[in-house]
């Protein structure tokens, strides 16, 4: 488990997270990351989205 964090100030809008898991991630009209729900389950897919994020905007705080 862990807590997913998305830093909108760091995001460059590459959209890799949405491509990896569009049930958890979205982009707003400016292309910046939005989490579709507050506390998504941190599964394999979410972890690969975090790994794929080019800007380092996504992180998981392990509990």
């Amino acid at each position: 488990m862990g807590e997913l964090r998305a830093d909108r100030a760091v995001c460059i809008g590459a959209g890799m997270c949405v491509m990896t898991d569009d049930a958890v991630f979205d982009q707003d009209d400016d292309g910046i990351v939005v989490l579709l729900n507050e506390n998504p389950e941190v599964d394999e897919k979410v972890r690969s989205a975090v790994d794929a994020c080019p800007s380092g905007a996504l992180s998981i705080r392990e509990e």
């Binding site: 460059i12 809008g13 959209g15 949405v18 009209d29 292309g31």
Partner: peptide
């Protein structure tokens, strides 16, 4: 870089 990139990002979203 961020200033320029942010102006362009909306044109390359999935939507």
């Amino acid at each position: 870089h961020t200033r320029l990139r942010r102006m362009l990002t909306p044109e390359f979203t999935g939507r």
